[in-house]
Each structure stands twice: as structure tokens, then as C-alpha cells.
Design a protein around this nucleic acid. Structure first.
Lengths: 116, 116
DNA sequence: CAGGATCCGTAACGATACTG
DNA sequence: CAGTATCGTTACGGATCCTG
């Protein structure tokens, strides 16, 4: 019984890690939240996210694409125009993000108020 | 209006990062979940978590203590007996963890089913 | 504009040995 | 038992420059 619980807990760990990996990294969260407002071009994101290098922006966007949270659309024209957007699937993360925000804000108050 | 939204989003990022930092790291999640079942001694945790070194176990436990999620209690006796337990506050993370598990499990199926 | 390539420093983590 | 201490490696991210 207890053993089974521990094994079940072990099976929960991998999917949870997936979520953490998807949201971790220095910039992914910012990218997601900015794209939740509206679609953006590469350059726009680079301007909005202070301090990010093109290398990192590319890397984070690729990972978000792989996880189907962000779409990359190429519009032909001159010059070529590339747009990043949150997918409907990506928006399903919103609930988790809001809960984390809620808990995190309370936590900040708690830690400030009663320092270790 | 749009500017304000972006700034508000920026204020959300720090508390969310706090939550991510608390749960990230290679072992913290396992520690939390094991302690949610029952209190454990250092050695028990070391045996249950395959591959963890005492150095890492100490480090992760300290961080969980600092965030008041885990308590460390020393029982005098021979030999001295030290017990780690989830705090009631630590249990408030359960909701988030369950949601992440839920989303993560669905995500695994999705990614498997429709590979990029 | 939308990246890719290269080089480099730090911080996380691992391995091993040792202590009260 | 419950940790520390030391050393080594790897991975993450930064800085800079280059390209179609």
C-alpha cells in the first residue's frame, strides 16, 4: 500500500518535471506572457525583453514551438515577415500560471514578514 | 492600457519565478512528494531517492527549510534523531503540484501522439 | 529583419572522502 | 546517523560578431 503510493508518486514526477522545464529557463515565462497579450515579431520580443540576446530568444522560442505552445508563421512579402503567437494549446497553461502567481505573491509576503 | 498590461505582467513574473525556483532543481520535487506521505529521516530520504548524494540532499533540504516548506526537528536521545517533515504551509503547494501533474500527463500524450 | 556561429564564465551537479 | 569538504565536470546563459 505504502510502496504503491511511493511508486505512484514516482510516476507523477516526470510529467511535473516536464511542466517545470517548459516554464523554466530565464526567458520562457516572459515570452509566453508577452505573447499572451498579442502576436509579436522576433525584433519586438527582443526589444520588449530587456537583456535577451538573439541566441537565447531563438533557443527559447524553438523549445516553445516544439512543445506546441507557440506558433511561428512566415508571411511572404518584402521584407519577409515572421510572427510568433501563442497557440490555443499554449493558453491552457494560463490556469497553472495564475495559480503560481497567486501562491508566489502570498509567499513573498510570508517570507518578508517572517524572515528565517 | 496596453503598456499597463505589460507592466502588470512584469510584476507577475517575479512571484512566478519564485515558485519555479522552489520546485526546480534536480531533487526538490521528489523530496517534497516523499515527505507529503510521511516524515522521514535524512538516511531514509537518501535511500528512497536513488542517486542523490548527501551534499545535494542537504542543500535541497536547506532551501526547502528556508522557504518554510519543510521542518527539521532534532530529537535528543541516543543516537540523536533528526526528522524532516512537510509543514502545513508546504502542503498548500499541493494544489499547484496536482495541476501541473494533470497538465503534464496530458502533454505527454499530446507530444507522443503528434510528434513535431 | 531574423537569426546562426563562436567563445567564454559561472553555477549546478556529481564523485569521493572525511567528521562529530 | 547526519551531515562537511574538496575536486571535477557539464550545462546554462552571456558577449560578440557574422549572414541571408
Amino acid at each position: 500500500m505504502k510502496k504503491a503510493s511511493i511508486e505512484e508518486c514516482a510516476r507523477s514526477i516526470l510529467p511535473i518535471r516536464d511542466v517545470l522545464d517548459i516554464l523554466s529557463g530565464k526567458w520562457k515565462l516572459q515570452i509566453i506572457m508577452l505573447l499572451m497579450f498579442e502576436k509579436r515579431r522576433f525584433k519586438d520580443l527582443q526589444n520588449l525583453i530587456h537583456g535577451i540576446t538573439p541566441k537565447m530568444l531563438t533557443k527559447e522560442l524553438r523549445q516553445l514551438e516544439i512543445n506546441q505552445l507557440v506558433s511561428r508563421t512566415v508571411y511572404d512579402g518584402s521584407p519577409v515577415y515572421i510572427e510568433y503567437a501563442i497557440t490555443p494549446y499554449g493558453r491552457t497553461l494560463k490556469k497553472i500560471i495564475l495559480e503560481m502567481e497567486d501562491w508566489g505573491k502570498k509567499h513573498r509576503k510570508r517570507i518578508m514578514a517572517k524572515p528565517v
